[in-house]
Design a protein around this nucleic acid. Sequence first.
DNA 1: CGGCTCGTACGATAGCCCTCGTAGTACGGT
DNA 2: ACCGTACTACGAGGGCTATCGTACGAGCCG
Lengths: 116, 116
Amino acid sequence: MPPATTRDLPHPAREEIRLESVLHALSDPVRLRIVRELAADSDELLSCSHFDLPVTKSTTTHHFRVLRESGLVRQTYRGTAKMNGLRRDDLDALYPGLLDALLAAAARQAARLGTD
Amino acid sequence: MPPATTRDLPHPAREEIRLESVLHALSDPVRLRIVRELAADSDELLSCSHFDLPVTKSTTTHHFRVLRESGLVRQTYRGTAKMNGLRRDDLDALYPGLLDALLAAAARQAARLGTD
DNA sequence: CGGCTCGTACGATAGCCCTCGTAGTACGGT
DNA sequence: ACCGTACTACGAGGGCTATCGTACGAGCCG
């Protein structure tokens, strides 16, 4: 049997990741912010509860699911915590330069609007 | 008085263009396709009716309005025709490299899925 | 075991969005 | 003046989405 601390979650395969879904996922301010934080700590996996978001826990769960189903984020359980990491390898392979351009654009806008 | 062939349309100023709105606009397949065609003929202004889209004229009007209001496209009347052009200058100034990365990603996906 | 924390499931609500059809306006040409 | 073309306005339907509250399951620790 698999290790007790592993409940598996459905992720799209690399080839199933659709650009439209990625863009739609990032068109929500809460999710864009999550992705920016994940990119900032790109060598760490962050738990859902690590984020201080202006929505309830239910809504947070919803946003993380959208991110996972769009292929932007990989989620794994570690005990009761759910760890999140950007799927940078898959995204870079599919769309080279896209993620960096998106993150740079988000950083620019945050700086411009003072939302940093 | 302005030339008779000029009915003005509301466009967001460069500084008002929001990344989330741009991404949302591009997350629809019909609009992504429009933007790709506009980028391919980037030195030409294309009329709305130039596009052969799988939706009715009403819906086409709707999509072009979303593109205009998001700041992706500039629209001007020329007689009865409404000409459309990408706002590449504004987008490149706000988010350098973003538009090219998005277009390249869309081209990659189209090639991968044979939807070209 | 008992409780605590982390996250999920489900239902509900309200708003947005894609789509369409019909009716109408603006402009150019005959 | 008249007609045709290009686009718009308005309204409606149906689906998706963001949000929440409450109730629940899964794992850790005393």
